[in-house]
Design a protein around this nucleic acid. Structure first.
Lengths: 117, 117
DNA sequence: CCGGATCCAGCGCGATACTG
DNA sequence: CAGTATCGCGCTGGATCCGG
C-alpha cells in the first residue's frame, strides 16, 4: 500500500511571504483605524485625533507618516494661517476598502466567540 | 438653506471596534502563517515547525494555544507512543480562508511598492 | 515527539511637556 | 492647528534548558 504524500507543502509556504508583506505595511496598533477613518472621506489631523478613540497625537502622527511612506495615504498642506493639513487615501489606499470591510464583517460575527480579553 | 450633516462619522467609528476585535484574535507574529499552513490540510506539530520559516517551537505552541482558545483551530491528540498531535482548522477557522487569500493577493501586488524594510 | 518553564532583550506604545 | 521631544514601562518574542 502506498504512502500518501502531501503536495500542498510548497503552495502553503509560498503564500506566507506575500501575506507577511501585506501585514508589514499594516502593522501598528492604529493603522487600520486610521485607514477606516479616511475611507469615509478626507480628514484633518485634529479631526482624526478626535474621531479615533484613545489615540494620542504622537501615535497618529507616527503612523500617518508610515502610511504616507508606503503610499497608502496622501498628505496635503494648505499654506494658510494657521496651517491646514488634510489627509486622504490614495487610489492605492482605496484598494484596501474591500478588505477592511470584510474584516469588519468578520469581526462583527466573531464578537460572540471571543474568549480571552 | 440647511446645513449639510456628515452622517458617515458614526459609521466610521462604528467600524473600528469590529475590526479591532477581528485583529485581536489574529494578533501575534505567527497567527496568520499558522492559519495559512492549516488551510492546506491538517498538520502535526513538528511538521508545522519545519514548514513555517523561522518560527520557534515556543511561539508555535503559544500561538496555537491562543488560536485553539478562540476556536479557530482544533487540537486532536492520538494516544499512541510516542504521542501524535494533529492540528486542523475548525469550520469557523475556515471562514477566514477568503480573507487570507485576498490578503495574499493584495500582498503580491503590493510588494513593488513597499518602501521601508 | 510534543511541548512547558524560565530568563531576558528590544521596542512598541503611552504620558507628559514643548514648539512654529 | 499640527505636530516634536523625551522618558520609561510592559509585553512580545527569542534562546535555552527541562519533562512526559
Amino acid at each position: 500500500m502506498k504512502k500518501e504524500v502531501i503536495k500542498t507543502h510548497s503552495t502553503c509556504t509560498g503564500l506566507i511571504q506575500p501575506v507577511s508583506d501585506a501585514l508589514y505595511v499594516l502593522s501598528g496598533k492604529w493603522k487600520i483605524p486610521i485607514l477606516i477613518s479616511l475611507t469615509f472621506g478626507n480628514k484633518r489631523f485634529g479631526q482624526m485625533a478626535k474621531e479615533i478613540p484613545k489615540i494620542t497625537e504622537k501615535m497618529l502622527s507616527k503612523e500617518l507618516r508610515e502610511l504616507e511612506l508606503n503610499q497608502l495615504v496622501k498628505r496635503t498642506v494648505y499654506d494658510t494661517i494657521p496651517v491646514v493639513v488634510e489627509y486622504s487615501l490614495t487610489e492605492y489606499g482605496h484598494s484596501l476598502d474591500k478588505l477592511i470591510f470584510e474584516l469588519a464583517t468578520w469581526g462583527s460575527e466573531h464578537r460572540k466567540r471571543i474568549i480571552g480579553k
